[in-house]
Amino acid sequence: MPPIGEIIRNSQIWKSIFRHPAPVDRRNRIVVMLTNFFLHLHPVSAKKQGIALSYTWCMGGVTFFLFLVETVTGVLLMFYYRPTIEWAYSDILVLRDVTSLGILRELHRWGAHAMVITVWLHMYRVFLTGSYKPPREFNWVLGVILLLLTLLLSFTGYLLPWDQLAIWAITVGSNMARAAPFLGHEGPGSQLLSVGGIDMITNASDARFGLLGARFVGEETLNRFYILHCIAIPLGAALLLAIHFWRIRKDGGISSPM
């Protein structure tokens, strides 16, 4: 009788799931990269020095992995959390003290901090190796947008526990918006936008109001930030991530000396 592992790998069920034999020889190591959905993001082969850990620091990959960690833990957290002033804080308390697997929020929060750091380190590496130079200019631009989205994801999530740390950090951060030129009611030029002596830009119509949904950080803000944090920004980031990865391939793979 053949070994049990071989029986399983030769079964109809296994073969129907995995479209390739075990990657133990050169041919099948190529086939696996081409026929597996999760692996097909990668090329079949790459420059040896380009993929060296001491060269890439794996920081882009680590950042993407943290994005996945945040997605999974974030979905689980949504099971326990209601974004209303009445419930938000107490749901976090329950999550901490009552719910089993009580480190869910810790994983999510520390993962978020780590993701900000790894994005910076990824950018640092890409700069120091000159990898933004032609033909990869536009992928660097996409990376800058993704950096911005990472910060915004972290910023919108900061409010959700609805504790003192959250509300005041968001207050300090969003106060900037009221000073936006023309669009903030304390910003330069906003007085010029008045019709018949009636100001168009007030504290109930300016950029800060648009961000918060109110004159100050309150119920509407919590709802707005929740939707931005859980749906709008992740969708945008996922789309840009896909293009970012696709462009790596199209622009010639991980950079290496020309």
């Binding site: 990657p23 050169r26 190591r29 190529i30 696996v32 990269m33 692996l39 990668h42 090329p43 079949v44 082969s45 790459a46 420059k47 040896k48 020095q49 380009g50 993929i51 060269y55 290496s256 000396p257």
Partner: peptide, 12 residues
């Protein structure tokens, strides 16, 4: 980075 820089298979 330019030395010993032939292509290798991504798996493994």
């Amino acid at each position: 980075e330019a030395i010993d820089n032939e292509k290798v298979l991504v798996w493994p």
